[in-house]
Write a protein that binds this DNA or RNA. Structure first.
Lengths: 144, 144
DNA sequence: TATCATTTTGAGACAGCTTATCAATTTCAA
DNA sequence: TTGAAATTGATAAGCTGTCTCAAAATGATA
């Protein structure tokens, strides 16, 4: 596991170096745990890491996840009242198809839609960092 | 103004009827004010309505805007630490391009994207009722 | 390896936004 | 008109995330 996320570790070190920040045991630990997830909240990570280090503070998790955002390793996303941190290196970005009947959620990806999004953004002078697409409706079972 | 938003008023009444809820002076007032906006926060509406009714409580605004969401008249959007309530009936449907630097919001419509969404939904056996598409990034001004 | 200025941490206080509580008031069906 | 049920307003409480600061860790330098 130590040499599993070499690339991301290197990216973090580069960011730290550029900003006079230091590599700490906590940052390594949090990065390692973060890279195993697709997306996670600070709170969830807090509980998860409490097992291996009961003294790791919640504030440190927040600080570190925000650091990862600055370093380009994570992306924050506001979901309801919570913030989810997405693992950018996890290639499969996906959108959601949500059934308002049974609350089933189907994930999907559509490159054509993503391409058109870029187009719209460019036309308006925007550079997209992230996006969110949710389709609400009824699944075949609930339609009856 | 009284007969300006007849359709939305009817939709609200239908929802109220279906759920044993009551039509109150406050709900009428808030609906009327809400429909004049494209999107607004509860706090902003609180200040705006304070002029005509200084005793209208903030909690009532929140409750009522959430009621509008249930009734399908509004859609909540979480941005940063605030929640913005979008007027769904406002000039058809539109999606958002949101600058994470200055919080500027640009609206857009793209038929091709909508068509592809239908396609994705159909492929998964879904019938779309509504959707939400938000692109987050930096506008040209904030990129520098 | 030892030194030490600088950064980071952990714990809890704090702040901003939203919801819960509850007595008083309003609605609306009968 | 009456009365059960829902709603309101004021505020307390809750939740998520950030700030504070003394103590600890880091890492550049000698």
């Amino acid at each position: 596991m130590a040499n599993k996320h070499v690339q991301e570790m290197a990216a973090l070190k580069e960011h730290l170096g550029k900003h006079q920040l230091k590599l700490t045991r906590q940052r390594e630990m949090i990065l390692s745990a973060f890279l195993r997830q697709e997306h996670i909240t600070a709170e969830a990570m807090y509980h998860q890491l409490a097992k291996s280090d009961p003294h790791l503070g919640l504030a440190t998790i927040y600080r570190t996840l925000n650091l990862f955002c600055d370093a380009g390793l994570a992306q924050a996303r506001h979901f309801g009242s919570q913030t989810k941190y997405d693992n950018v290196s996890h290639k499969g970005h996906h959108d959601h198809l949500i059934c308002t009947g049974c609350e089933k959620i189907v994930e999907f990806e559509n490159e054509e839609i993503e391409r058109l999004q870029e187009e719209v953004a460019a036309r308006n002078g925007f550079t997209i960092k992230t996006h969110r697409l949710e389709l609400y409706g009824l699944c075949s079972r609930c339609r009856h």
